[in-house]
C-alpha cells in the first residue's frame, strides 16, 4: 500500500519532460483512440442497449427488457428458418471450403508446368468483388438463360434450378463459396512450404508412399493453418451477406436462402425493427464466440504446433 501511495505521489512530481512525453504520446495515439471510442465502442454499447428496446430509428427507443430475445426464440417462425439455413450453409461451406483449399494448395505446391499461372488463376476469384461474383453466377446458374443449364439442355439433360428451387439455393451458395478459396489457398501454400523437407526424406527412406506422407506428415504439419482457415471460414460464413443478398434479395424461394445477416438487415431497414436487429447481432456474436471457443478447445486434440 505504501509503495502504491509513493508511486501515485511520484506521478504528480514527475518532471516536465516526462509529462510532456506522456502528453505527446497521448496526442499521437488520440486519432486512433477517438476513432475507437466514437466508431467502435459507442456503437457497440449502443447496440447492446438498443437490443433491450423497441426502436424503429425514428421514434425514441422504449425499454422492453429481454423481449426482443424472447421473441426470437418463441414468437418468430422466420428466425427458426433462418437459423436452419445459416447452420446448413456454414456447417457445409466452411469444412468443404477448407478441404478444397487444402487440396488445391497441395496441387499448386507440386512441381507442375505453369505453377505460377495456376496459382494466379486460383487466387483470382478471391479478389473479385462479391457483387460481381453474384452477377457472374447469376448468368451461369439461371434455370432458363444460364450457361450451365444451356449446356445441359444441349446435351439433352435435365436442367437444374440452382437459384430458383428451395432445395438448390443453399447448395448453390456453398458451391460459389468453395469456388472462391484463393485466400485460404495462399495460407496453406505458406504452411506447406514450412514443412521440413527432411521429414519427407526420412519417410521416403522408411518406405512411406505418397498417401502415407500426405496423411502422416503434410496434414499434421498443416493443422495450425487448417485451424486458422476453419475458424475464419466459420466466422465469415455466419457473417455472409453480400452474396445471398445479391442473389436472393427477397430471401429466395420459400425463404430458403435467407441467411442470418440478411434477416438482421431486413429487420433493421425493411421492418424498422432496429431493437430486434440489435438483439440478432448480439446473438450472432454469442454464436460465433461459441463456435470459436469450441474449435480452440477441440484443437488441443488435433492441432500440432511446431515443437510439440
Amino acid at each position: 500500500m505504501a509503495s502504491l501511495t509513493k508511486s501515485i505521489r511520484n506521478s504528480f512530481t514527475e518532471s516536465t519532460t516526462q509529462r510532456r512525453t506522456t502528453l505527446l504520446g497521448l496526442l499521437f495515439v488520440s486519432p486512433w483512440l477517438i476513432g475507437f471510442l466514437v466508431f467502435t465502442l459507442y456503437p457497440l454499447l449502443s447496440s447492446m442497449y438498443y437490443s433491450l428496446t423497441r426502436y424503429d430509428l425514428i421514434r425514441p427507443p422504449v425499454f422492453i427488457g429481454l423481449d426482443n430475445y424472447i421473441e426470437l426464440f418463441t414468437d418468430d417462425p422466420s428466425f427458426e428458418t433462418v437459423m436452419r439455413n445459416t447452420l446448413f450453409y456454414v456447417g457445409l461451406s466452411a469444412p468443404l471450403g477448407v478441404i478444397t483449399a487444402f487440396l488445391m494448395a497441395n496441387l499448386l505446391n507440386s512441381k507442375v508446368v505453369g505453377r505460377s499461372w495456376f496459382r494466379a488463376i486460383f487466387f483470382f476469384p478471391s479478389i473479385i468483388p462479391a457483387i460481381v461474383t453474384a452477377a457472374v453466377w447469376q448468368f451461369l446458374l439461371n434455370i432458363q438463360f444460364g450457361a450451365i443449364n444451356g449446356y445441359l439442355q444441349q446435351i439433352g439433360a435435365q436442367t437444374i434450378p440452382f437459384l430458383s428451387n428451395p432445395s438448390w439455393t443453399k447448395p448453390s451458395l456453398i458451391m460459389i463459396h468453395v469456388w472462391a478459396q484463393g485466400g485460404a489457398v495462399v495460407v496453406f501454400l505458406a504452411a506447406l512450404q514450412d514443412v521440413p523437407r527432411s521429414l519427407y526424406e526420412a519417410a521416403t527412406v522408411d518406405g512411406a508412399n505418397a498417401w502415407q506422407r500426405f496423411k502422416s506428415i503434410t496434414v499434421p504439419m498443416c493443422t495450425p493453418a487448417i485451424l486458422l482457415n476453419l475458424v475464419t471460414s466459420f466466422i465469415a460464413g455466419f457473417q455472409n451477406f453480400t452474396l445471398p443478398n445479391q442473389l436472393f434479395p427477397d430471401g429466395g424461394p420459400s425463404l430458403s436462402a435467407e441467411m442470418y445477416t440478411t434477416y438482421l438487415y431486413r429487420n433493421a431497414f425493411t421492418y424498422l425493427r432496429m431493437g430486434k436487429a440489435s438483439a440478432l447481432a448480439w446473438l450472432l456474436f454469442l454464436i460465433i464466440i461459441f463456435f470459436t471457443v469450441l474449435f480452440f478447445r477441440t484443437s488441443r486434440n488435433w492441432v500440432h504446433y511446431g515443437g510439440d
Partner: peptide, 11 residues
C-alpha cells in the same frame, strides 16, 4: 412452373 417463374424473374 415455380422454378421457371423464379428463374425468369431473375433475368
Amino acid at each position: 412452373g415455380p422454378d421457371q417463374l423464379a428463374g425468369l424473374r431473375k433475368v
